[in-house]
Design a protein around this nucleic acid. Structure first.
Length: 138
DNA sequence: CTTCTAACA
DNA sequence: TGTTAGAA
């Protein structure tokens, strides 16, 4: 969660951005006007762009060069955003599955240890119980 | 000198 | 999208 902060940090003025992207200031300002980027502003009302802003501008430029108009670029960008959000939900669901699996493993282990206590086959039952007593808080 | 907004011989 | 004007 720290790397994302760095990528969103407002750093460079429009001059730097235009040199980086080979876009004109006119284009960069217009893209902002269309809601494709949201650079911060200084106290003097000058735009400050983040790494993410510059990255997005490269994407926009690439799509424009492929003959896609701004409306199309806008759609693709927001759909890409939707896909990223969907992926986040998938990852959450997967993490939940892992969690459930771990819980089931612990129940299984508890059941096995309990069985061994009831039917000790070795002479070290008390030691085993001491090591795994945390499974018997219920 | 750089950037901003608004407008269009 | 380019370009220009006047202000900050």
């Amino acid at each position: 969660m720290n790397d994302e902060m760095r990528r969103n940090m407002p750093l460079f003025p429009i001059g730097t951005v235009t040199k980086l992207t080979d876009l004109t200031p006119r284009q960069v300002r217009y893209y902002e006007q269309q809601g494709l980027i949201q650079p911060e502003r200084t106290n003097g009302n000058q735009r400050l762009f983040s790494f993410n802003d510059v990255e997005r501008l490269f994407e926009i430029k690439s799509l424009i060069e492929k003959g896609i108009n701004l409306a199309g670029v806008k759609e693709m960008l927001q759909k890409n955003h939707q896909i990223l959000e969907a992926n986040k939900e998938v990852e959450k669901a997967q993490a939940e599955v892992v969690k459930v699996k771990q819980e089931l493993s612990e129940r299984e282990l508890r059941r096995l240890l309990k069985r061994d206590l009831l039917h000790p086959k070795l002479g070290r039952t008390s030691e085993v119980y001491g090591e795994f007593s945390r499974f018997f808080r219920n």
